[in-house]
Each structure stands twice: as C-alpha cells, then as structure tokens.
Design a protein around this nucleic acid. Structure first.
Length: 199
DNA sequence: CTCTCGATGCACT
DNA sequence: GTGCATCGAGAGA
C-alpha cells in the first residue's frame, strides 16, 4: 500500500474535531519489514486543563510530555500493568491534547496480527486500545514517533469514501468528566461498539 | 449470552 | 500507598 501520511495541519485543530475526523483513516505500522494496516473505528479526545480525565490535566511530566509537544506525534503510555495505549497528539490553542485510538478494523497483515494477539477471531484482534497495540506491536518504543512521516508508524487517508454513521458518547473507563461526549465510533461495527460500551 | 474480578507495573500523591 | 484512558478467564443464566 502506498499511502501518504495525513499532514501536520490535520492535527493542529480542536482535539474533539480531530478525534471525529480520524474515524475511517488508516493506521499503518511498519513492523519487521511487514506492513500492518487497520481502519480506525473508535477514538476519544483528551484535552488539558479543560479536561479532568486527561493525563495532561495537571502539569507536564515525563510521561505526558508528548501531549504538550508538536501535534501529529504518537503518545504511547503503559497502564493497568499490562497494556499500552496509542494516542495521536492534537490540539489548537490549548496547552496539550491527544486522541486515544481505541479500536480498528484489521485490513492488511491480518495473519501477523492474529499471531501477535494469539487469536484467529477477527472481531477480537483490535477491538480495544490494549488489543490494538498488541496486534500492531506498539510499545513505549513508539512514543513520540512522528505520525506525519512515513516511518514505523503513521496515519493516512483511506482510498475511496467511507460511508458510515458516526456515533458519539461519553468516554470509556474513566470516572471524571463523563458529561463530555468526546468518544466517537463508527456505528456499523457492532462488535466494537457493543463490546466497548458493555451494552 | 452477561457479569465479576484478579493480574500487573508504574506514575504520581 | 493509591489508582488507573484494560483484558480475559471463569462463573452463572
């Protein structure tokens, strides 16, 4: 697949708008000479001082530093003792911001993803933030990677039109700022939306 | 099918 | 010491 990365400009906008617009884009991982590709189907926006649920709510630290840096970079963090989560940094006028990429639909390199995930059930390959990073072998090593250049990890426009309905809700797995409807997902993917909302 | 609960490591208080 | 932007096994229905 020959795909051009999304321009830096794309990420230099309101974080919530970027989260919505990342739906349907392609996440591309160059791993060990193989290309792993997935279509993004679920995202969440995280802000700065305006967002009590964000890692960047308080101050800049070693962990969240990337969220305060240039837009269009990967912010990867480790959580719950087992999992990595992938974000794309994005913001306009705020101090910090990022979009959590929660789920994707495997498109290319599916065999390798199955091996990484130790399952052959397609709907279980990347239907969650921890699963997605496991399928694509994304770890802290990819933290701060530039998503706007063709490298080990980037995001590109998909071919053709994405014809789908977009759903919106509170964010998952947090207890603060539940009034903010900053989670976006492609409705057609019932596996993903059902599993992750628990409904 | 749904729900509960333990694992597990690290950032931050 | 506390609390996670989670996952999957296992139990119950």
């Amino acid at each position: 697949m020959q795909m051009e990365p999304l321009p830096r400009q794309f990420y230099c906008r309101n974080t919530v708008a970027v989260a919505r617009d990342l739906l349907g884009k392609l996440l591309i991982r160059d791993f060990d000479g193989k290309e792993l590709v997935g279509g993004i189907v679920e995202t969440e926006a995280y802000g700065a001082q305006n967002d009590p649920a964000s890692h960047a709510y308080r101050k800049r630290t070693d962990r969240n530093a990337v969220m305060f840096g240039e837009q269009g970079h990967a912010y990867v963090y480790f959580t719950y003792g087992n999992h990595f989560c992938l974000n794309a940094t994005a913001r306009d006028s705020l101090l910090a911001g990022a979009v959590l990429i929660r789920a994707m639909e495997p498109i290319e390199g599916v065999e390798i993803m199955m091996r990484n995930r130790k399952t052959s059930v397609l709907a279980n390959i990347a239907s969650g933030p921890g699963k997605l990073t496991q399928a694509m072998k994304i770890t802290r090593e990819q933290n701060s990677a530039d998503l706007c250049t063709k490298g080990e990890l980037y995001i590109a426009e998909a071919d053709g039109k994405i014809n789908c309905r977009i759903g919106r809700s509170s964010r998952i797995g947090i207890v603060r700022a539940l009034d903010k409807k900053w989670r976006f997902f492609i409705k057609e993917n019932q596996h993903v939306s059902r599993k992750l909302t628990g409904k």
